[in-house]
Amino acid sequence: MSDRPLTLPLALLLGLVTVVTLFPVFWILMTAIKPPTDWNAVPAIWVPSEPTLVNFQTLFDPEALGVYGVGGVSEAATQAVFGSLLASIVATALSVGIGLAAAIALSRYSGGGRATPLIILSGRMFPPAAIAVPFVIIFSTIGLIDTYFGLIAIYIAVTLPFSTWMLKSFVDEVPKEVEEAAMLDGLTRVRAHLTVTIPLIKGGLFATTLFIFILNWSEFLFALVLSYTTIETIPVRLAKYVTATAGTLYGVQAALAVLAMVPLVIAGFLIQNHLARGMTFGAVKR
């Protein structure tokens, strides 16, 4: 961290950046507590005069908006929240776990030769939309469509390059001498990884986990094309809050978006020390 004092121009710049980044968050928060009449009002209503929780209520009780004369909301968001939690947690855990093993293999055992990391990354070198349709066809043939198993498998496949590369950069930072020192103390190589390498990259591990979780949590395309009736996730649900009579239900969408932000914000706060350390640690004085 630099010790330069916070000058006025610097403070203004910081303030501007903060306003620009937080404006969408502010807008969504406000929309989430607006009654249907305020959603599309012209001129825009910044802060609702009669804040309401009806949008949140609608997420779990589709009839709740009836008091405002808005009907036809088909389903509750309960299943989507459950689906997102299930798919994101399982896929993130597996992606980070497999990625960690791969990262150690690549960093310490030069597994598969020098091209391997690039080959792994090549899975991300084309737009997801290009593989979405083939996946729908393949998955329906093998019966994985509309299943959490299929969705989680895809999520692992598309996030694994990120988790591997991120974690590899953290493992690369740990000098191999630290593991060798542990081996000289009588540990096997694998146990040296477990007791020394992994604790040393803890910050990086947290940062990677959060990043991969955000990717999975906000994924829309695959969830949309692979889900019919059995599975649903929050982003897919968000797109479905459109009714024939009232058009897009902006308030309900905003309420669901606020709900979706909560776990990320909490996780971010809990591990923010690690996030900062994840980028700055160094085990060796050079």
Partner: peptide
């Protein structure tokens, strides 16, 4: 294996376990 040769090695870059206390480092082996 390296741990079974009764040899001590002090590495050039020390290779101290920075996530542990000094006492823990000393008692590790």
């Amino acid at each position: 294996p390296p741990g079974k040769r009764n040899i001590g090695l002090v590495f050039q870059d020390y290779a101290v376990f920075t996530h542990m206390t000094v006492a823990k480092n000393l008692s590790f082996g």
